[in-house]
Design a protein around this nucleic acid. Structure first.
Lengths: 333, 333
DNA sequence: AGTGGTTATGAAAACGTTTTCACGTTGATT
DNA sequence: AATCAACGTGAAAACGTTTTCATAACCACT
């Protein structure tokens, strides 16, 4: 009852050919006489032979597996990207090793190392910050890596994103144009470049163009959770904010419910624009207006880009920007 | 500039020992003299040697990788399970190959086969139905498989779930006790055992015990999507339902918003209990009452069970039932 | 009939580990 | 001093493929 495996050698013997020939037919190499091919195929069928991908990986130095580092699959934003990644991966016959990093730098480095040990052919990285140590590991990796929905301020790494600066600027302008003088900026940690150097920059630009003064009291730094958003309400009120641009949908839902539960009307008393356009925006009431980004596509395009890199195909744009938009729903007037 | 890899052989040479010894220190085998160990460790450090997991897998027939088949990562219910699975997997030094199946039988079989080809040490399967063909593949697999949040009516496969029959019965009873004579049953396809043989059974039992007649017109078979739920409102009204038990949270959110948008008040005109207790239940307004199940734990426990199976450890219960509950929020009175 | 170029095949060497055996050493026990 | 067990180590055989290289067979052409 031991796992008795049929090997390529068994097939070769039964079909009365060499291993090399079996390997050829299995891999669709055209240099095989049709008659031989058929003979081998028959034996494969009869013996129910299944090539061992590990042995194949060792011999060919290709595993047809790519690593995916994700902060948290449970977050709708990231799972949408992951879905795009997996679909394209499957299309190109790759499998995905998925690991949650919790945006924890140490864990990211460790995960990266085990992925390299497993000889993945490429890596898609999601996360909001690239620590120094992590960057060092990236550099030393001989494996292609692309960032998905994750900015690299230095622009060295292949990545796919939207233009966060412009998107946020447009959203904030929209809020200001409707008369909001005090627009809150709510995001995750400002240590993360995507917040500090992109979103916040867009926010400041919009203020400047509207002739408004930047006020630190309107900047709220918190973590990306529903709960955190909900708890922000008193602080928002204290700061006199009448609108907010929020960096994450779950967080935004929390903010909105916090505000509503305090008796204010959204959007009449308080307007909100969120950033990720996940399906959550349509499930809450009022539905949330949002910056629009093609989540699935960001994942899909990163994976596609990665396939090119893994294949050493020429790549025109190493850092691709996908189009964004602004979707008006019911949390703005 | 070619990927010049340091092998165990290089280390052996530099440290002036045999490969076997290097292997021993890398694997923590105690049978190595401390002095030798240090010497080897130093060389490893100096050369930055990283063991090749693929070669290791071939030689040892263990890949420390498990396959996870999931209908759709994008669904909050499943991603919560996946998170539990990954955390425990990581704890036991396993990695996860994650693939979406879309509950498509053909795809499930194909994915299963590539997982086997990749020599995964075990598999966690999520999905609502096990087709005949899939079951055949399961049987023939020499690899341990456990079902997570997925019933096997035949009880042959290891699985971890809650008692869906009892949970639904309790929820429906709760609805009936509050005077609802016409409780709708809303779920995914009744072809799926979990709906046909478990949830519906609980529903019928509750009706019977309350002396109510089972009415097919109150049974709504749809797909698990927000949209589908939203569109159900007219039919619900036509059937005269005043309450509903719903099999999925996104679906339930759709139902609730459909009902609300039609001008009815939830819970005064229409009560809803949903089934999965995902965080979505707290994000919508009103918050949804729900059957409570330990999602993360279902994933975690399945993975833990799988580790035991992979390790040929004795297992007391092959089909484990985790506790459920009923959480009253604002979609019921 | 001789030449040259495909085309089809096999032998055997990688690929980078783990693992099995056998063999010396060592130290304790009689 | 002889015996034994435990310990520490190395040689070499797996593991199941791909890939390189050589060669045989075939097929036109001159």
């Amino acid at each position: 009852m031991d796992k008795q495996t049929v090997t390529i050698y068994d097939v070769a013997r039964e079909a009365d050919v060499s291993m090399a020939t079996v390997s050829r037919v299995v891999n669709g190499n055209p240099n095989v006489k049709p008659a031989t091919r058929k003979k081998v195929l028959d034996v494969i069928e009869r013996l129910d032979y299944r090539p061992n991908a590990v042995a194949r990986g060792l011999a060919s130095k290709k595993t047809t597996t790519v690593g995916v580092i994700i902060p948290d699959v449970t977050n709708i934003y990231f799972s949408a990207l992951a879905r795009g990644i997996d679909d394209i991966a499957m299309m190109y016959k790759y499998n995905i090793i998925l690991t949650n990093s919790d945006e924890n730098g140490r864990k990211e480095v460790q995960v990266l190392n085990t992925l390299m040990a497993k000889q993945v052919d490429g890596i898609v990285f999601m996360g909001n910050d690239i620590s120094e140590e992590l960057r060092k590991e990236f550099d030393r990796a001989k494996t292609p890596i692309v960032l998905a929905g994750c900015v690299d301020p230095t622009g060295q790494m292949p990545s796919v994103n939207i233009d966060y600066v412009a998107a946020v600027e447009e959203a904030v302008k929209n809020l200001i144009d409707r008369g909001n003088q005090k627009v809150a900026f709510i995001s995750g940690s400002l240590d993360q470049p995507i917040n500090r150097e992109y979103r916040l920059k867009g926010y400041k630009q919009a203020l400047k163009k509207a002739g408004l003064r930047y006020d630190e009291k309107l900047v709220f730094e918190t973590d990306y959770s529903y709960k955190a958003g909900q708890l922000l309400q008193p602080a928002l009120q204290a700061a006199g904010a009448t609108a907010a641009i929020v960096g994450d949908d779950e967080l935004a839902a929390g903010v909105m419910n916090g505000v509503s539960d305090a008796g204010l009307n959204v959007p009449d008393d308080f307007e909100i624009i969120t950033s990720n356009d996940t399906k959550l925006t349509e499930m809450v009431r009022p539905k949330m207006s949002s910056i629009t980004q093609p989540l699935y596509d960001i994942g899909a395009v990163s994976m596609r880009l990665l396939t090119k890199l893994m294949n050493s195909e020429p790549v025109d744009e190493r850092t691709v920007l996908l189009p964004y938009g602004l979707m008006k729903r019911d949390s703005t007037n």
